[in-house]
């Protein structure tokens, strides 16, 4: 564990806490893409198949449980909670994410570390996570003004993978034979997708103005 990876995990956890706060405090999920939340639930379930077979550390197991439980809880809230579900932007959250799932799985069948069920699903989860934010970014562009908590949620979610890129660079330089090409390249693509969001987020922070993404 290095400082970059810890910062990445804490930033990821923070993004989830901010989203839970937004939904709990405002009893609303307006501006949140349910499709992105569902993709993340798939990402975590596909990635943590080793949850009960490979014990790495208490921290590792604890965080995996947190990520799986929180993503499923958020999807449940957005689908079934009597108050929260009413504020879902159904007509704006129309990204056909089936293609993202299909393409990621097809790529995982071709490019993986080892051709085992666990490794193929791990690669699948890496590719899917790289594009999972797309429905959310599309929704932000369509829904015009973005409330602060939603903006912070997306910002921390994008920032966590940037910390992981620093972590991979650090490990590549300090650990012999360390390579994570699949996660590394996907992580760069994932973080690059946030580029324009980060730009408008920085502008809104500098001008102390409302975050607005051009349609």
């Amino acid at each position: 564990m290095n400082i970059f990876r810890l910062a990445g995990d804490m930033t990821h956890l923070l993004s989830i806490l901010v989203l839970l706060l937004k939904i709990y405090a405002t009893k609303s999920c307006s501006g949140i893409s349910r499709k992105t939340q569902e993709l993340y639930a798939i990402v975590f379930m596909a990635r943590y198949l080793d949850l009960f077979t490979d014990f790495i550390s208490v921290y590792n197991t604890f965080m995996k449980l947190i990520f799986i439980a929180s993503s499923l809880a958020i999807v449940w809230c957005m689908r079934f909670h009597p108050v929260v579900r009413r504020s879902y932007d159904r007509e704006l959250d129309t990204f056909r994410y089936f293609f993202l799932v299909g393409a990621s799985f097809a790529l995982a069948l071709v490019w993986h570390d080892k051709f085992t069920l666990q490794e193929v699903f791990w690669a699948f989860s890496i590719y899917l996570e790289a594009v999972a934010i797309l429905p959310q970014l599309v929704l932000l562009q369509r829904s015009g003004n973005v409330d602060n908590l939603t903006g912070q949620y997306v910002f921390f979610l994008g920032a966590y993978r940037a910390f992981y890129i620093l972590n991979w660079i650090y490990r590549y330089m300090t650990e012999p034979r360390f390579t994570r090409w699949i996660a590394g390249i996907s992580g760069v693509v994932q973080t690059a997708l946030y580029a324009d969001f980060f730009y408008y987020y920085f502008i809104s922070w500098k001008n102390n103005s409302k975050l607005k993404l051009p349609a």
Binding site: R5, H12, D54, N60, F67, D113, W122, Y164, N167, R177
Partner: peptide, 10 residues
Amino acid sequence: DEQESGKDEL
């Protein structure tokens, strides 16, 4: 080897 291909990250 396990560590090498092992997935120790989240």
